[in-house]
């Protein structure tokens, strides 16, 4: 057993919330620059230049890249030999978010109740996902997620007869419907399989992968490339004003599923796709 005081988790999350909101991950920076190099639309080139200027400014001046500093999506992979001490783990996570968003001058975007609304004032509660894994380490991923893109995401319970074509059409349809709203260029996280709840989580986890990475299964890796190409033929372009760069990447995650179904979730993210990971 390895004892870890939960205050260590709080401190780490506090730092990560601030850092993730100010510094776009390298994979995203490189991905956007690569898109700029291939872009052939005149308006699109100007917009991509400003998007690059924006994340470089945020990086240098230590300010939030975007004003929507998101809901704090926190993923923990906890080694089963870890024993947390000094308090409740979820409280410690939320305390880290509270401090990071307050000290970091990040926007507090969380409403206490979905219908009756009311800002909680400190961006808690976080959206927490904990997985138990072998070992004695804790892997923390912080991924602030804005809602301009979250709102354009979709989930559909396909029947197996819809086949691969059904999935392809759904991904394209979701990106088409999103149009300019999710601040293109976007990152497309796709979950296929599992059940209603797990497919959505798979799509979200797909967004945690570096944008230039591929699914380890060559079949899905090829599908990622194919969908990226098809999406970029739509011509939506940066900010929806026309261009080649509609998406920077497509990441697909899959799960085994039921004989009667083939769920698919498409989680849209924007050019400010933030994620960072630390291992304790």
């Amino acid at each position: 057993m390895r004892d870890i005081d939960v205050s260590v988790i709080t401190d780490e999350i506090e730092k990560m919330c601030m850092h993730a909101n100010r510094h776009l991950p390298k994979d995203m920076q490189e991905g956007i620059k690569a898109c700029r190099a291939c872009e052939d639309g005149p308006i699109a080139c100007t917009i991509l230049d400003q998007i690059i200027d924006n994340f470089q400014t945020a990086d240098k001046e230590e300010v939030p890249i975007c004003q929507d500093t998101g809901m704090a999506c926190i993923f923990l992979e906890v080694g089963q030999e870890v024993h947390f001490t000094g308090g409740a783990l979820y409280d410690a996570i939320n305390e880290g978010v509270r401090r990071g968003y307050t000290k970091g001058y990040l926007r507090k975007s969380v409403e206490a109740d979905p219908i009756r609304r009311g800002n909680t004032g400190d961006n808690t509660p976080a959206m927490i996902t904990v997985d138990i894994v072998p070992g004695d380490k804790v892997k923390i991923t912080v991924a602030p997620k804005g809602f301009g893109s979250e709102n354009m995401s979709a989930l559909r319970m396909f029947k197996p007869s819809a086949g691969l074509q059904g999935i392809k059409d759904f991904i394209l349809e979701t990106v088409e419907n999103a149009g300019p709203n999710p601040c293109p260029p976007i990152v497309v996280g796709v979950g296929i399989g599992g059940n209603f709840d797990h497919v959505a989580l798979a799509a979200k986890k797909a967004l945690l992968r570096p944008v230039d990475s591929h699914n380890p299964d060559p079949f899905y890796a090829a599908l990622e490339d194919e969908m990226l190409e098809k999406i970029n033929e739509l011509g939506i372009g940066p900010q929806g004003l026309g261009g080649k760069t509609t998406a920077i990447g497509v990441n697909i995650e899959t799960l085994p599923t039921h004989i009667a179904g083939m769920p698919c979730a498409v989680n849209i993210s924007c050019h400010v796709t933030r994620h960072e990971t630390e291992v304790i």
Binding site: I51, I65, Q67, N119, G148, L241
Partner: peptide
């Protein structure tokens, strides 16, 4: 249309800011 997600750059063009109503709504 202003560039969505370019909040750091756009802020440089805002020279004055004064809260005038609904402070309880935070952001």
């Amino acid at each position: 249309g202003a560039i969505g997600g370019a909040g750091a750059l756009l802020a440089k063009h805002i020279k004055k800011c004064r809260l005038i109503a609904y402070e309880d709504l935070g952001p």
